[in-house]
Design a protein around this nucleic acid. Structure first.
Lengths: 235, 235
DNA sequence: CCAAAAGTGTTTTTCCTACACCCATGT
DNA sequence: ACATGGGTGTAGGAAAAACACTTTTGG
């Protein structure tokens, strides 16, 4: 029972209403221009057999939802949460969303650069793995819906903020950035116009040096000028 | 340390961690070009004495957060929730946000046209009243913070969606609409450009007739073409 | 005819879009 | 020298911004 104090003011007979509170995390990264989500095995007979879902778990009575999300990124997704950008998405309170009982979930979206992940964090185990978004279907609970909300948010916020910077490695080329934008937004972008637009916004800082990725002309290297996600019209 | 998973496996009875879940509603309307919020008295000795806060209450185990919000709009704000546009805002889970115990609140924003409210709904009692936004300060709990999130959301969404239509009466003049935009966004708008922009978007439908509000030229009357809130760049 | 808000058009500037070729490098 | 992705400029059109006067009504 929660510790709503007995002294509840003037309300004498109190019908306390309880819920189980959980946090679920939609953890995104991009590898080879593919958006990946971190999935976790779900095996809760008789409801879910050898199924899969988002990393998540219950919120402890002594932690905030955000602290729980961070803890779960660590303990369930096996990724260092300090590397992740975290943003609250939506709270799912459908009565039947968990067949085992009433569970209300605060969903979070987390973004990570693939580079910067340790081999362990990049790796897959039987219980946790990176899945291309397209294959993250038919998940347990209402996790399909949660992923949809996350993808919608990611897409829409990409076009008016520097959010995608949180999926990029610290240093990247303009082509890298353009590719991510194209893959997330699902649109095609004109290379010249994209560069003009991005550079005019002054959200990037050029870094000395170039990067060669093959037997062709090396590209200039940039990084975001600010660590903060700024709301600016991008596309 | 929080333990969440395995011991709950299967259908066996679970020892789950419980939280008290509440819904708080930031109910906005506009009267005389002033943004109003519905406030409720808060008197919970020894923590809050003759204080004020948002209408809110606990979520029942058999209702979703949204259903609770609607119920509370009715029972606490004394307004017919069918008249309101409702949108989930954010979930506040600070451990100390309620001094009486751990309460996690799902906050909602609700928008209402002032016209269309009954005299009772427009009215103030000792327990519930409409307050100009500027005076909705020093509220109980973390309600100042909740209002801030609501106002930020209202402002930002106003510029890229037809959300403000939910604060307007069914029929209004272009000057009315412009005034609301100015008051919410806090910017000044050019009358001619505003009209051109709005009319070109084709989100309004002109209604036959005119409205005189004084001894000067009567204005044409419009209404929104769609009841839905559309995401379109407005300003 | 006066006061007050309603309503309208043009010009300038800025931004978006479309589009094609040369550059730098490793092999 | 060649294959490959990196990098650049310009012109035309659309949208935004700046700007002031005429119209309609009640009194």
């Amino acid at each position: 029972m929660p510790r709503m104090s007995k002294k509840t003011g003037g309300n004498s007979p109190r019908r306390l209403r309880f819920a189980v509170l959980a946090a679920d995390v939609v953890l995104f990264t991009v590898r080879n221009n593919t958006l990946l989500v971190r999935l976790h095995s779900v095996h809760k007979p008789p409801y879910f057999l050898n199924s899969k879902g988002l990393p998540g778990g219950l919120i402890d009575s002594k932690e905030t939802a955000e602290q729980a999300a961070k803890r779960l990124i660590k303990s369930k997704a096996l990724v260092d949460y300090n590397k992740a950008y975290l943003e609250q998405l939506y709270t799912f309170s459908g009565i039947e969303r968990d067949p085992r009982g009433r569970v209300v979930a605060v969903a979070y979206m987390a973004l990570l650069p693939w580079k910067g992940l340790s081999p362990t964090e990049q790796g897959n185990t039987g219980d946790v793995w990176w899945s291309p978004l397209a294959e993250a279907r038919r998940l347990a609970y209402d996790h399909d819906q949660i992923i949809k909300v996350a993808v919608d948010r990611l897409r829409s916020k990409s076009s008016y903020s520097t959010l995608l910077g949180k999926l990029m490695p610290e240093e990247f080329t303009l082509t890298d950035l353009e590719t991510i934008y194209k893959s997330i937004l699902g649109t095609s972008l004109d290379k010249r116009n994209f560069r003009k637009k991005i550079l005019k916004l002054k959200i990037l800082r050029q870094v000395p040096g170039k990067r060669a990725r093959g037997r062709f002309r090396p590209a200039r290297i940039y990084r975001f000028a600010s660590k903060k996600v700024q709301e600016i019209e991008i596309i």
